[in-house]
Simulated assay, not measured.
Amino acid sequence: MWIVAAAAVVFLIIGGTVKAVGFLLWVAPFLLIVAVLLFFLSRSGGRRIP
């Protein structure tokens, strides 16, 4: 019975981690795009090209 309980806790932790990683895999590309856009906007904001 203790083995089953320990396995359930381990599977619960692994399942939560997998869901968190899956969520981050969906969020990370959007954050990367925003970061790149902000980087280019901040670099071009200082210089005005006539």
Score class of each variant (00 low, 15 high):
Arg43Thr: 11
Ala7Lys: 06
Leu24Thr: 10
Ala5Val: 14
Phe40Thr: 12
Val18Thr: 14
Ile33Leu: 14
Leu24Val: 10
Ser44Thr: 15
Arg48Ala: 06
Val27Ser: 03
Gly45Met: 12
Ile3Pro: 02
Ala5Arg: 09
Leu38Lys: 04
Ile13Asn: 01
Lys19Gln: 07
Val18Lys: 14
Gly22Ile: 08
Ala5Met: 11
Gly45Thr: 10
Ala35Arg: 13
Gly15Val: 02
Ala5Phe: 11
Phe40Trp: 12
Trp2Glu: 09
Leu31Ser: 09
Phe11Val: 15
Ala35Lys: 12
Ile3Leu: 08
Phe30Val: 08
Ile33Asn: 02
Val21Asp: 02
Ser42His: 05
Met1Pro: 14
Ala35Leu: 15
Ala5Glu: 13
Ala7Leu: 15
Gly46Thr: 09
Arg43Cys: 05
Pro29Val: 05
Phe39Glu: 07
Phe30Gly: 06
Gly46Pro: 09
Trp26Ser: 02
Leu41Thr: 08
Phe11Leu: 15
Phe30Arg: 04
Arg43Leu: 11
Ser44Arg: 15
Ala8Phe: 04
Leu37Asn: 00
Phe30Lys: 01
Leu32Thr: 07
Pro50Asn: 09
Leu12Pro: 02
Ile3Thr: 02
Gly45Phe: 15
Ala20Val: 14
Ala7Gly: 02
Val36Asn: 01
Val4Cys: 00
Val9Met: 10
Leu32Pro: 03
Phe40Asn: 09
Ala5Ile: 15
Val34Leu: 08
Gly46Arg: 11
Pro29Glu: 03
Ile13Gln: 03
Val36Ser: 01
Val36Trp: 05
Ala28Gln: 07
Arg47Thr: 15
Phe30Leu: 03
Val9Ser: 02
